[in-house]
């Protein structure tokens, strides 16, 4: 396996008294796509949101174990959460552009992190929109409200917004589950392009999607990491009976 960018060791997570993750350990390889699959409620989204500490927003969450990002402990009290989230960006299940212009949406992140000056912001906005493969569709209406875009365009705008702060990792939480098939394939293509520069971790309900685009796949069940490995291997020769049952559609 290639060198890893995030190392998760013995991660356990509780919502109140309910344990959502049980001793999860895995390495996420740099500049690759890692897919997280498993039935609803298996903890894959929870796991994803732990990686940039979005779970901090939920009251009553308790975490043990360690997550190392580029050799630093993300739970350390000295860790700058804002900087962590800049480097580990997130794309959500439902496209959630802010109710402002397309331009301001993309510029939001850089402005948050102190980028000033119109020329500089213009550059960042154009580059991010190009990288998210939506520039040609919106270049003539950058000042229009982002909520006027279609669902698929909104989601690519959200990807552009995440790319604008130059992250190293992109976490995607079922980014295509609210989209039509054409928009879905556009996002998948985009993910494959993006992995040249970024590390992508993607939660998906769609096993074909995991098989199509990911390099490695992790299968979660009831908060446990059942199996983790190279995608082709996991889908063709699963080692665990439960993985086999899931990918052949026996439950889920």
């Amino acid at each position: 396996m290639m060198s890893s960018i995030i190392t998760i060791d013995n991660l356990c997570l509780w919502y109140g008294n309910q344990q959502a993750l049980k001793n999860v350990s895995l390495d996420i390889a740099k500049k690759s796509i890692t897919a997280l699959i498993g039935p609803s409620g298996c903890g894959k989204s929870t796991f994803l949101k732990t990686l940039n500490r979005m779970n901090d927003l939920i009251p009553g969450v308790k975490i043990t174990g360690s997550v190392q990002y580029e050799k630093t402990d993300i739970f350390d009290s000295a860790t700058d959460v804002s900087e962590l989230r800049r480097q580990i960006g997130m794309v959500f299940q439902k496209p959630n552009p802010f109710p402002m212009s397309i331009y301001d949406n993309v510029a939001y992140g850089p402005r948050t992190h102190g980028v000033k000056g119109k020329a500089k912001l213009d550059d960042i906005v154009e580059r991010s929109l190009r990288d998210a493969a939506i520039w040609n569709e919106v270049k003539d209406r950058l000042k229009k409200n982002a909520l006027g875009l279609s669902g698929g365009q909104q989601q690519r705008l959200c990807i552009a917004r995440a790319l604008a702060v130059e992250p190293a990792v992109l976490l995607m939480d079922e980014p295509t589950s609210a989209l039509d098939p054409i928009s879905t394939s556009k996002i998948e293509e985009l993910a494959l392009q993006l992995k040249e520069q970024y590390t992508i971790v993607i939660v998906t309900h769609n096993m074909q999607q995991a098989a199509r685009i990911s390099d490695n796949t992790a299968f979660f069940l009831l908060g446990e990491l059942v199996e983790y490995g190279v995608t082709e291997m996991l889908f063709s020769q699963p080692r665990d009976k439960r993985t086999e049952d899931y990918i052949t559609g026996r439950f889920g």
């Binding site: 927003l57 959460v81 989230r85 800049r86 959630n96 992140g109 948050t112 917004r161 702060v165």
Partner: peptide, 9 residues
């Protein structure tokens, strides 16, 4: 809110 927090705000 999630979107903005996710960008490090």
């Amino acid at each position: 809110r999630e979107g903005a927090f996710g960008l490090g705000a």
